[in-house]
Amino acid sequence: MSQADIFVILRGLPWTVALTLGAFLIGSIVAVPLLAARESQFLPLRLFAMSLIQVVRGIPPLLWLFIIFFGLGMSYFPISPFVAALTGLGLIAAANMAEIYRGALKSIHHGQWEAANALDLGRLSTVAFIIAPQALRVALPSAASYLIGLMKETAVASTIGVAELAFQGNRLSQLTFQGLEVFAVVGLLYVVLSLPVAWLSRSADAYLRSKVAA
């Protein structure tokens, strides 16, 4: 492979990073009200949230992108490939992050709530200063692992025309007939992108452990 070929592949790097971080941010935010609905005492709302999470997680990401881009986008309102991919992956991330948050909350002993109540702390203060820091530490490794997995899932966006790493690699391999070399470089880039996430996760986990322990 020539240096020019590598630059062609690297053109997809910003799209992959933007799609990964954008979908993860959307998912992390939307997961909060989704979790609240999932844990609601109002049965219809809880059943709706549970069903939504199961449906979203049960359908393959590729099919979600096809539904949004080819189904909704071409039948009802125009939508760009990037926005369609961001919407689909963000929706999937929300369902998965809601389950990660729920698992983290379930790991907090009920005695923490009782102790906060005994100290006459309000629910908001209890969540913000006692429950959330502990739950965040528990959720962090799973969230980081999901972020790495989400980055790899962005490759499906190439099927609807998002010019990310997999798209650029596929187009270059068709032009140069060097599929092995091209996709080896693409795979290496995915590995390189995952390393900072893993390092940041370990650093943040160590920091949170020290704070919680203190």
Rank of each mutant, 00 (worst) to 15 (best):
L86M: 12
N117L: 06
A143I: 04
L136Y: 07
V156N: 03
Q174N: 15
L136H: 09
P61A: 15
R123D: 15
G187P: 05
R57Q: 13
L105Q: 11
E99M: 04
N170Q: 12
Y207L: 13
I59A: 08
Q174K: 09
M97H: 03
A93W: 02
G161Q: 07
T154F: 09
T159Y: 14
L25C: 11
L52M: 12
P141C: 08
A49R: 10
A163S: 08
W64R: 05
L195C: 07
Y207T: 15
L65H: 08
G71E: 12
L91Q: 01
A214G: 13
L200D: 12
D205Y: 00
R11W: 10
R38C: 00
N117G: 15
F48W: 15
S2M: 07
L62E: 10
E153A: 11
D5V: 01
T154L: 08
A36Y: 09
Y76R: 10
F82P: 04
D205T: 09
L195N: 05
P44G: 05
A36W: 06
F77M: 14
Q178C: 02
L119E: 09
W15Q: 14
F69W: 11
V8W: 07
S210K: 05
L52K: 00
P133V: 01
E39Q: 06
S125D: 14
A143C: 05
G22N: 01
F77T: 11
V32N: 09
G27Y: 06
L21E: 12
R209C: 14
I148W: 00
A37S: 06
G90L: 09
M151W: 05
L35V: 09
F183A: 15
L43M: 13
G179T: 11
T20L: 01
E153H: 03
S28P: 01
A184R: 02
L140D: 05
A23G: 02
L10E: 15
K106E: 09
L62I: 14
L47N: 10
L180P: 01
A206T: 04
G103F: 00
P133W: 00
I79F: 01
Q178H: 14
A128W: 07
P81E: 05
Q3C: 05
L43T: 13
Y101V: 15
V212D: 13
V197S: 03
A115T: 04
I68A: 11
S173K: 06
L208D: 01
V197N: 04
G27T: 06
R11L: 11
A184V: 06
V55K: 04
P60H: 13
A23F: 08
V30E: 04
L65A: 11
W15G: 03
Q3P: 06
S40D: 10
Q168I: 07
L21C: 09
L62W: 14
L121D: 05
V32I: 15
G88N: 02
L47P: 05
S173P: 02
S210Q: 09
A31H: 02
S2I: 10
L175T: 14
E39T: 11
H110I: 08
F48G: 00
A157R: 08
Q41M: 08
I67C: 12
I59N: 10
S158D: 02
A116W: 14
F7S: 15
F167R: 13
A128S: 10
L25P: 03
A4S: 11
A18H: 02
A104T: 08
A104I: 02
V32Y: 04
Y76F: 15
V127Y: 12
G71P: 08
G22W: 00
V83L: 13
